[in-house]
């Protein structure tokens, strides 16, 4: 019956194109693997243009799975993902991805890696974009070096630049800083925001670092595990640039911590032990 009903006003194409029209709409997304494990259950999320949303949660709550479905690398068991009103079935030209590992192509130098996705552009435009991105990430002098000659942080910067230069509307970041030390991470946060400021793509950032989420995101969405689903959403509402040691920043961190804490306590779903059971312990 539901298949026959006409959906009015749900697709973004039917809404007026304002600043608040979501660029990314995830609708009732579920993923069950062949062995019956349910990785994701009923995920719905919409993200406005230019917004930075952090997905946070412990390991095994399906963060990466969700990102891969949005990227079109895997297929959902139920539900849809739309970018700019187009349903995602395979990787989309307007969606960029930065993986947990840099995944640079070892046979291309740094400039070649940054420009890997620009093969369709004229050479001069390609060069200009690569040069500008290398400048932004502080590797302007290193375009001719091989990936193996770079540190882990430098490699991840190249991977981020590679995703940005194609000017995607939506950028998916899968824990891109998790393997880096705290100092390098701080540095990369600044450079990520610098690149973001140029074209203002929508960013969906998967992380397990509360500080990182609060430093970067407009909105933090907490995920719960088994099966992965969305829990609370915390609006950060802090002006940029942000100061991670300021009091209001600390307050936002505490709010996210509290939400994360609630998501880890299954108290709401399991009733407390019955009195007679408790009595047996005495």
């Amino acid at each position: 019956m539901t298949g026959a009903t006409v959906q009015v006003g749900r697709g973004p194409s039917l809404q007026p194109l304002t600043q608040d029209t979501p660029v990314l709409i995830v609708d009732d997304l579920s993923k069950t693997y062949a062995d019956g494990t349910q990785a994701l259950s009923g995920i719905s999320l919409s993200v406005r243009p230019g917004e930075i949303v952090a997905l946070i949660g412990g390991s095994g709550c399906g963060k990466t799975t969700l990102l891969r479905l949005i990227a079109g690398l895997d297929h959902a068991s139920r539900g849809t993902v739309q970018v700019d009103g187009e349903t995602i079935r395979e990787p989309h030209p307007n969606v960029g991805v930065v993986f947990q590992e840099a995944r640079l192509l070892p046979w291309l130098n740094v400039a070649g890696n940054v420009g890997f996705g620009l093969a369709g552009l004229p050479r001069s435009e390609r060069r200009a974009r690569v040069a500008r991105a290398l400048e932004r990430i502080g590797l302007a002098e290193h375009g001719g070096r091989w990936p193996r000659e770079l540190s882990g942080g430098q490699q991840q910067r190249v991977a981020i630049a590679r995703a940005f230069v194609t000017h995607p509307r939506v950028l998916l970041l899968d824990e891109p800083f998790s393997a880096l030390d705290a100092f390098t991470r701080r540095d990369l946060h600044d450079q990520l925001l610098g690149l973001w400021g140029e074209t203002k793509p929508t960013i969906l950032l998967v992380t397990h670092d509360v500080g990182e989420a609060v430093t970067l995101a407009d909105r933090v969405v907490v995920m719960r595990p088994r099966p992965g689903r969305l829990d609370e959403t915390i609006d950060i509402g802090l002006a940029r640039p942000r100061d991670p040691v300021a009091a209001h920043h600390e307050g936002a961190v505490r709010r996210v911590m509290a939400a994360l804490d609630r998501s880890l306590r299954p108290a709401a779903t399991h009733p407390p032990l019955a009195p007679e059971t408790r009595a047996a312990w005495w």
Binding site: A71, L73, E90, P91, P93, G96, V97, F99, E101, R103, L105, W107, F116, G117, A119, T166
Partner: peptide
């Protein structure tokens, strides 16, 4: 497989995937 996925993200055709990722990888 992770490098092949990079090729998928940039929507390389089968031919481009073979030329730009598989060939250099097996060389």
């Amino acid at each position: 497989r992770k490098l092949v996925e990079v090729g998928r993200i940039f929507r390389l055709s089968r031919l481009a995937l073979a030329w730009r990722i598989l060939l250099p990888a097996v060389l």
